[in-house]
């Protein structure tokens, strides 16, 4: 897993809230920049500190969570936006039938829901994994 842009020590206040759209990251890394008087892995107390280092830790968690969010929302947007667009580009779509049932009915009357629900449950797993790893990171020392 390569480090995405922005993971190497950007303070939370500098973050614009929008994660890169590229390959989505799921590993929470300890930020590179650390106070000079500390060593070893970050601990639970660090994240609760109101200093730059605590903010950095929190920022890395938020970016990881935002990555999980985008990893389901981008496919969802594509899924929803694509079919209307296809209908404009391919006007025959309206009269297409699948086994005697209009294609639109197959898609809008049922077919579109299973992928949406699957994305939902997949997101829950990913978000919980992000939190678990973040917790392990803090508990390690």
């Amino acid at each position: 897993m390569t480090a995405p842009p922005g993971a190497d020590g950007v303070a939370v206040e500098g973050e614009d809230g929008v994660a890169p759209l590229g390959p989505v990251r799921e590993v929470v890394r300890a930020p590179v920049r650390r106070p000079a008087d500390r060593s070893g892995a970050p601990g639970r107390e660090d994240v609760l500190r109101q200093d730059d280092y605590g903010r950095e830790l929190l920022g890395s968690l938020m970016r990881a969570q935002l990555g999980a969010t985008l990893s389901v929302l981008v496919p969802a947007v594509v899924l929803l936006a694509l079919y209307p667009l296809l209908a404009v580009l391919v006007p025959d779509l309206a009269s297409t039938q699948v086994a005697g049932v209009p294609l639109t009915l197959v898609v809008l009357g049922g077919g579109i829901y299973p992928p949406l629900v699957a994305l939902g449950f997949w997101y829950v797993r990913r978000a919980e994994r992000v939190e678990r790893r973040f917790g392990e990171l803090l508990d390690e020392r």
Binding site: T104, L116, Y123
Partner: peptide
Amino acid sequence: LGALWYAVGYAAGYLVLLA
């Protein structure tokens, strides 16, 4: 049938809310 987008949107709103 295009009006079924209302239903799709009502459901997909929960995916956005969730994530």
